[in-house]
């Protein structure tokens, strides 16, 4: 009977698509992306942070963000988390009596929350309209409200919970740290690093920042060392490169080395981030997720490109389906022939 043969053909065609889904790690595998060579970023050293929130206030000013009230008196800008109107926030780890700074037991510690500027950002991969883009040179993950459709897939995708949407507006935008890229042409670097009184937030090339972070990890806790503040100049920075940035170049001062966890957060997570972090308290306890070196964006795009790369697979399946359907579809006017083999 013809139906049986057609049934099997149908199985073949229909099964092809399903089978394709089972073999995600095939030819179109997309590796985790790496940071661009001239990537800019921040180094946040929680042991240097004094919790003054100068960076929070400066960030608000630099990005023209309004205050957010969470207390009944509506007097102070006191956001509980980053939001569509707060791109940078110092949060606090608290434990027990909170006696000692940077101690996990009965201590407290600060943690900066702002965009990590991933080497392979989930938000960029997720955005259907390229409103989130990673600058090929500086690696800054920027947002374009004119392109954005407000689907908030980036909000859902980010493992750090960074892109935030303005739910309080009919024309709400996504709000996130863009490393103050709008101030760069005026010679201003990230406002948070610019105002940080202790150099807990340091601006610079990620490569230099990573070297600085590793230098600190190699020192003995309690030892006095020179800590840079503001912007970390590259090792052999040319005067014309230095001239790009305003402000005093050398603001370094003597400070004591913290009792660090021996890990630079952001060195390898999700293929690395451009914002790096040092902490004396376990990073997970300080609210940073434990991420593998492989990014979700890589996994997601590998699946997508395996299935839809060059539309090869859909077209092949469509061809099969069309062929089968052409044999099986009988115009209704030929109804009388129905049931005849």
């Amino acid at each position: 009977m013809a139906t049986r043969r057609d049934f099997l053909k149908g199985c073949l065609a229909g099964g092809a698509a399903a089978a394709a889904a089972v073999v995600p790690e095939a030819a179109c595998a997309r590796d985790t992306l790496e940071r661009p060579a001239e990537a800019l970023g921040l180094l946040y050293d929680a042991t240097l942070c004094v919790g003054c929130q100068a960076c929070v206030a400066a960030c608000k000013r630099a990005n023209h963000n309004p205050a957010e009230f969470t207390t009944v008196d509506h007097l102070w800008d006191a956001p509980l988390d980053t939001s569509g109107h707060t791109f940078n926030l110092i949060k606090m780890y608290r434990h027990g009596t909170m006696e000692t700074k940077d101690a996990e037991e009965n201590g407290f510690a600060f943690m900066k929350t702002s965009c990590m500027h991933c080497a392979d950002p989930s938000c960029v991969s997720a955005c259907p309209v390229s409103a989130m883009r990673k600058d090929p040179e500086t690696g800054i993950v920027g947002y374009d409200p004119d392109a954005c459709i407000g689907c908030r897939y980036c909000v859902a995708a980010c493992p750090f919970g960074i892109p935030k949407y303005q739910y309080d507006s009919p024309t709400g935008q996504i709000g996130k740290c863009e490393l103050c890229r709008h101030r760069h042409q005026d010679g201003h670097y990230s406002a948070c690093a610019e105002v940080c009184p202790t150099g807990a937030t340091l601006f610079g090339r990620t490569d230099d920042l990573l070297a600085e972070a590793k230098r600190r990890l190699a020192l003995k806790p309690g030892e006095w060392t020179t800590m840079p503040r503001g912007r970390l100049p590259a090792k052999n920075e040319k005067p014309e490169d230095a001239a790009k940035w305003k402000g005093i170049v050398d603001q370094s001062y003597q400070a004591q080395v913290g009792n660090y966890q021996q890990h630079v957060y952001g060195e390898t997570e999700y293929g690395g981030t451009q914002v790096l972090k040092l902490s004396a308290v376990n990073f997970q306890k300080a609210g940073l997720p434990d991420l593998p070196p492989k990014s979700s964006a890589a996994t997601s795009e590998t699946i997508q490109h395996t299935l839809y790369g060059g539309l090869m697979m859909p077209i092949a399946v469509l061809a099969g389906l069309t062929w089968v359907a052409k044999r099986n579809v009988v115009p209704e006017d030929d109804d009388k022939k129905g049931g005849q083999p």
Binding site: Q53, I90, M92, Y93, F110, K285, A286
Partner: peptide, 19 residues
Amino acid sequence: SLAKLKNIEPSSFLPRIVE
């Protein structure tokens, strides 16, 4: 030279890691 803050005390404004 920079002072080492002695009163880095939990400010009531600083949010917890998880709020």
